[in-house]
Structure formats: C-alpha cells, structure tokens
Design a protein around this nucleic acid. Structure first.
Lengths: 193, 193
DNA sequence: GAAGTTATGATATACACTGTATCAGAAATG
DNA sequence: CATTTCTGATACAGTGTATATCATAACTTC
C-alpha cells in the first residue's frame, strides 16, 4: 500500500531510483526496445517481481521519468515566465538538459512513446497564448507557429545532446533566439496589449 | 531465391504490398508497438510464416516502407534540385505527403524507430552544402542550421498530416518559406558564389 | 500450353519475455 | 522492540517470435 504523506519508505525510493537509472543506462546502451524487464532488474540489483510492484510496464517507468523531469524543469521555468523574462528561458532549458543529459537523451530518443511532443506543445501553446496574439494578415496561422516553436525547440535540444554539448547553454540560447524565437515572433505573433 | 532481373514473381510483389498496407492500417488503428505479426498476416490475408520469408522482423518491413517512400520522393525532388528551383520543393514535399498521407503518418509517428530524422538530415545537409556556405560571423553554426532546417521541415509535415491536411500544398509551401527557409537562410547561410 | 521452378499455406515446435502469485525473510517505521 | 511493509526468489500460465517441414498452388519460361 502506498503511504499517504510524510515519510515514504526509504526502500521504495531507493528501488525506484535504481530502476530509473538502469532504464536510462540500458536504453543508451542497447536502445529502448531491446531492453527487457529482466535485464532492467538485474542491472538495478533488484528482484524481477519487484519491478511490477513499482510500475505496470516498462513504458510506465519511462512515462514517470518524463513526468518527473518535466515537473523539475517547469519548477525552474515558471518564475521566469511570470516575470516575462523570456530571453532566459533558452539558457535555462539548455542548462537543464546539460545537467541531466543522459535522461534527456533517453526521453528525446523515445519521444514518440512518451508523448513528449504532445505534452510540450500543449504547454508551449498555453504559454504563447498568454503572452501573444496572432499577427493580423500573417501567412502563418497561430497554431502552426506554436507547434513550430515547440517542435524546433525540442529538436535543437536533441541536437545539443547528440552533438555532445559542444556549446554553453548561453550560446545555445542565442542560437535559439536567432533561429527560432525571433523569426517566429516576427512572422506570426504580436505582443498582447 | 531472389530473381536477378527482369521479371519479379507476381506473388512476391502482391504479398509485399499486402503486408505493407496492413502494417500502415494496423499501426494507425492500434499503434505500431501493439501490432503483432499474427495480426499483420491475418489482415493481409497471408500465411503467418510467409511474413518471415519477406522480412526479418516488423521493424524491417517499416524500414523498407521508409526506403521506398524516400526513394519515390527523391525521384520527384531531384529535378528541382538541379535547376535550383528551391521554392517549389516545399510544395512538392507537402503534395507528396498529402498523396501518401497514411504512409507518411506511420513513418513520421514511428520516426525514431526508422531513423527517419538521421537519414533526412544527411540528405538535407548534403543538399545545403552544395548550394550554400556558412554565413561569416553568424551566431548559428552551419551544422545547426542544417539540422534545424530538416528537423522543423519534418515537423511541419507531421503537423500538416496530424491536423488533417487543412491547407493546400502551395499554402504550406508559403508557410515553410516564411517560418523556416527564409529565416534560416538569412541568419546562417550565404549563397555560393 | 506444358514442364519445371518457386512462393505460399498450414502446422508444429523451441524459445524468450511478460505479468501474476506465493511465501519466507529483511528492513524500516513509530 | 513490535508491527507493518517491502523485498527476493521461485514457479507458472499466457503470448508472441522465429524457424522448419511438406503438400499444394501459382508463376515464369520455353
């Protein structure tokens, strides 16, 4: 039974951490599909049956990894959003990706499984709608601009990780601004009055 | 044994077509992972063992679907590339996607499995390198620009299909130009002299 | 159109992985 | 320290993969 509040059993958190870490490591080694639950538990140093006491499936573990990571990222991002300090968002995201590179690699590489793009697009569209309105007469619909912004942002993060973190988060923030944010704003968006 | 040349056995092509069609249909219905080879052969009206005489696995069938589709697309695109008629590329690609919408949906939805992004990035980078050089002093490296171009292009095609083909290929070509091609060229590329 | 070649269908089988159940023992909480 | 709860080990049924075999049907070539 899950404990309601206060003190989670130390064994539970330890097992969960080991499983998540093993999933990341094995996915990077052999690819997500090739990883079996038996390998996973062996790598984690955990009994086979114990896995199913934590997750209903391998996908559920990945799903929770995404949720945890997104929650952590949003906790750092939200303060910048309320102060409308949009310029720093790029730096923060790329810094977060760098700090959790392996985890990000797994989540981005198995993005279609976790529904990462859909969830981020929803977040991004809501954020955009709060700050911008469609630019009148633009050839680019608002919906397309929002999708493009999120999708190419994620793509840039994925490239950053695949390329082995060749630049600082600040530099990547500048690239993001020049290649994606500024053009999208200029062509399709208008600041809310 | 595979025939060397001339006349491929009519049974082979029929079986292969049925299998490919069944894979597309079932993937759109239940999702790629949920599709089993048994379902596949049942839907295709083909014996179970026959599947493995054509493909080594479900992934191999998907892989071949991607190869066939990319070959067909490139055959239509190449003439435009040599005449440097880059403006028409967008229209051609979106038209091709519209004409083979279900197949595209499957390939884009399972992109990480088929390695679609990697192969398209290679193609796109080669094409770009033939026509453009890095813009001196740009904050955006050539490699990043090439990756961005291809990745966001693919993302726009994927949106087009998910949204249910709400615009004409010509209109999508204009959006592509305004949102992706023009900004990337302006910020990071320079025409070869 | 006939002969020979080749793919197919049906069936059986070995193997791998999943997900669940059980139970004794270890570890954490209060 | 006593009780609760998690864990490890093991067994098991169910499902899906991949291969092998053989009689039959379909196709190509001449």
């Amino acid at each position: 039974m899950t404990r309601r509040r206060g003190s989670p059993d130390a064994r539970v958190v330890k097992t969960h951490e080991r499983l998540a870490q093993a999933l990341v490591a094995l996915t990077l080694e052999r690819g997500y599909d090739a990883v079996t639950v038996r390998e996973l538990t062996a790598r984690a140093g955990v009994g086979y049956a114990t896995f199913f006491r934590h997750c209903s499936s391998k996908e559920a573990l990945l799903e929770q990894l995404l949720t945890d990571t997104l929650d952590d990222l949003m906790a750092r991002l939200t303060p910048q959003l309320v102060t409308s300090d949009l310029a720093r968002i790029g730096t923060l995201v790329f810094g977060h990706a760098r700090d959790h590179a392996d985890r990000y690699r797994v989540l981005l590489r198995t993005g279609e499984i976790t529904g990462l793009l859909e969830r981020c697009t929803r977040l991004g569209t809501e954020t955009l709608s709060a700050t911008f309105i469609p630019k009148p007469g633009s050839v680019v619909p608002f919906e397309v601009a929002a999708h493009h912004l999120v999708h190419s942002f994620i793509g840039l993060v994925a490239w950053y990780l695949d390329a082995g973190l060749p630049h600082t988060p600040e530099r990547m923030g500048e690239i993001l601004e020049a290649l994606i944010l500024e053009p999208t704003y200029r062509v399709a968006l208008e600041a809310k009055k």
